[in-house]
Amino acid sequence: MRARRALVGLLAAASLTSACAAREPQVGVSAADPLGMFCGEQCRTALASETPPEQVSCQVAFLNPATSFPYGAAQALAAQRVATAYPGMQFSVLNAEGSVTTQTSQLDTVVNAGADVVVLDAVVADALAPAARRATERGAEVIAVDRAVNAPVLSTIKAPDVELGDRVAEHAAEQLGGRGRVAILSGTPGASPTIDRTTGITRTLARYPGIEIVDDVNGNYDITQGYQATRNLLSKYANGELDWIISHADIMSLGAIQAIEAAHREGTVRISGIDGQQQGIERVADGSYEATVVYPVAVSAGVVAAAKACSGEPLPERIPLDYPLVTRADVHQYLGTTYG
């Protein structure tokens, strides 16, 4: 393990404001149960450690892309909760608030300050690759969570975004009976989930010749932008010209549902999405949202993996998380199990 130096001032630099000030967000994990219900058998086997938590001693930094959206806020909180299970782990969380430049600087800084392991949720996969390579060259271990980074890392922990896109699109196609006009509400351009979820959605819908993708609009993983993008779609496509919206993320879907309701297009324009955010699951329960595919909070497994790496134990190159489809038929078993 590398010689350690204190990460002076890094916690002060971290912005840990919640996206939901009225209540502490749910994250679906705790120090007592750091892996939650979406780390299945393969995941738990990969993260099993021979080292007792109290014997883990190292410096770990989690680099979060932003806390301005619920998933990012939940990640920051989950990381801190899980890290408390390791009393000898010096742990810090830094939030880039969507800036590639900021996150690149943060990664260089924590490595120069002696971090043994960096748990990285990259703002943009390609842009963070050079800094991730520098970190590895300087002797730090990098574990990617949630979003892949296009550089060699010790392990990548996430649900498979292409397959999430497949799953939500397959459900929509089945509900449409194989015929209809679909729009995609996409996330941040260049982010690996955006690229991969679009790949899954488009390749699945391509198997249905009666389904046409009429538009792909950007909501940037933001509720307000999701509302505005959907409002524009509803203005562009009259009744009968748009049947379904597939959203890359529940946070955008919540804005989209508001736009659909404001336009009185409920029932004629249906919507489903990805992430399994609690507010999205609640919308499935009340019937205004057709379905959501759960994307679990990945950083909790990342912190457990970091502890294992600190102890010199091996990790597989990829550790998958489960991603169930939530519909009205089974929604009640998922209430309170994810984040939001």
Rank of each mutant, 00 (worst) to 15 (best):
A6K: 13
A6P: 08
V8E: 15
A12G: 08
S18K: 01
A21T: 11
V27E: 08
G28R: 04
V29R: 01
A32S: 07
L35G: 13
F38M: 13
A46R: 04
A48W: 12
E54Y: 09
E54R: 14
Q55G: 10
S57E: 15
C58G: 14
F62I: 01
N64E: 04
P65G: 08
T67D: 03
P70N: 03
A73R: 05
Q75I: 05
A76E: 06
A79S: 08
Q80T: 14
R81Q: 15
R81N: 12
G88A: 09
G88N: 10
M89I: 07
Q90R: 13
L94I: 01
N95P: 07
G98N: 03
S99C: 07
T104D: 08
Q106A: 02
Q106K: 06
Q106V: 03
L120F: 02
L120P: 04
V124F: 04
L128M: 10
A129Q: 04
A132T: 01
E137S: 13
E137N: 10
R138H: 10
G139C: 13
I143G: 06
R147L: 09
R147Y: 09
N150D: 14
N150P: 06
P152H: 13
I157A: 10
L164M: 15
G165T: 10
A169C: 14
H171Y: 15
Q175D: 08
Q175R: 15
V182H: 07
I184P: 03
L185E: 03
S186I: 02
P193S: 02
I195N: 02
R197Y: 01
T199A: 15
I201W: 03
A206C: 12
Y208F: 15
G210Q: 10
I211L: 12
I211D: 09
D215Y: 05
T224A: 15
Y227G: 00
R231G: 09
S235T: 14
E241C: 06
E241S: 11
L242R: 08
D243Y: 03
S247C: 04
H248V: 04
H248C: 07
D250Y: 00
M252N: 06
L254K: 08
I257A: 03
A259K: 04
A259N: 08
I260G: 01
E261D: 15
E261H: 11
T268S: 02
G273L: 00
Q279F: 02
G280R: 00
I281T: 00
I281E: 01
I281W: 00
I281G: 00
R283T: 01
D286L: 02
A291K: 02
V294F: 00
V294K: 00
P296A: 05
P296C: 06
A298T: 02
V303E: 12
A307S: 13
C310T: 02
S311D: 09
P316K: 10
R318T: 15
Y323Q: 14
L325E: 07
V331C: 06
H332D: 07
G336R: 09
Y339Q: 02
